[in-house]
Simulated scan of single mutants.
Amino acid sequence: MNPIRDYLFVYGSLRRKPGACSNHPLLAGCEWVGPATLAGRLYRLDGYPGAVDAGRGRVQGEVYRLRNGRRTLAALDRYEECTRHFPPPHEYRRVRRPVRLADRRVLSAWVYLYNRPTAGLRAIAGGDYFLQPQEQA
């Protein structure tokens, strides 16, 4: 019997930086699968993004296969502050969603979705956090 493979979709600070080959230390030991998209909308928060299930847009990101899913997800839950050790309502919630890889395959992957109201937030056009215009200081 094949074990269930856990995949993770990331779209913000956990993504590889453009032109770099390394990813966030929390993903050390995970296997990079490739670029992917998630149905939804991306918003600019306080220097980082938040994706929500809304609209017809696509959120740009990438997928990793988790080699030690339970331990990695526990560490990521702490990083995203969505464990019982943080007061609710949590800013993010971890859920499974279908994501589409560049080769059109669809996988079920864990993703951290923004869990608060989006009124007053600025949507990121094109759904790619790395391609958004940088604000002037």
Rank of each mutant, 00 (worst) to 15 (best):
V99A: 12
E31Q: 14
A119Q: 14
V59E: 01
R93S: 08
V63T: 05
H90M: 01
L107D: 02
G50L: 06
P117A: 04
K17M: 12
P49V: 05
H85T: 14
V59C: 03
V52N: 03
R104W: 12
R67W: 08
T83W: 11
G69Y: 08
R58S: 13
L121C: 07
P3T: 09
R105Q: 11
Q132D: 10
R70F: 12
T72N: 05
L66F: 06
A125E: 14
G12N: 07
L66M: 00
S13C: 08
G69I: 03
P89I: 01
F86P: 01
R65S: 08
F130A: 09
I4A: 14
N23S: 15
A36K: 04
C21G: 13
L45Q: 09
G61N: 04
T118P: 13
N23P: 12
L26H: 04
R93N: 09
E62N: 04
E80M: 01
R56Q: 15
V52L: 01
L101N: 05
T37E: 10
S108M: 10
G69T: 10
V99N: 08
P133F: 11
P88A: 14
L27N: 04
R122N: 11
A123P: 15
Y64D: 07
R67H: 12
V106L: 07
W110D: 02
G34D: 03
R94H: 06
C82S: 02
A54I: 09
A119I: 02
R44H: 15
G12L: 12
G127L: 06
A54C: 12
Q134M: 13
G34R: 03
M1K: 14
A39N: 13
L113Q: 06
E62A: 09
F130P: 00
F86Y: 15
C82K: 05
Q136S: 13
A51L: 01
K17H: 14
H85D: 15
L107T: 03
T118I: 12
A74Q: 15
F86T: 15
Q132P: 10
G61E: 00
P87M: 12
Q60S: 11
L38G: 02
E81V: 09
P18A: 09
F9R: 02
V99H: 09
R71V: 15
R97S: 09
V52R: 01
G29T: 05
N23V: 08
L107V: 07
Y114E: 03
F130R: 06
Y43G: 00
C82M: 05
Y7E: 00
L107N: 04
R65T: 08
E80G: 02
R70N: 11
V10M: 11
L101P: 11
P49N: 05
N23H: 15
R96Y: 09
E91T: 04
L45V: 10
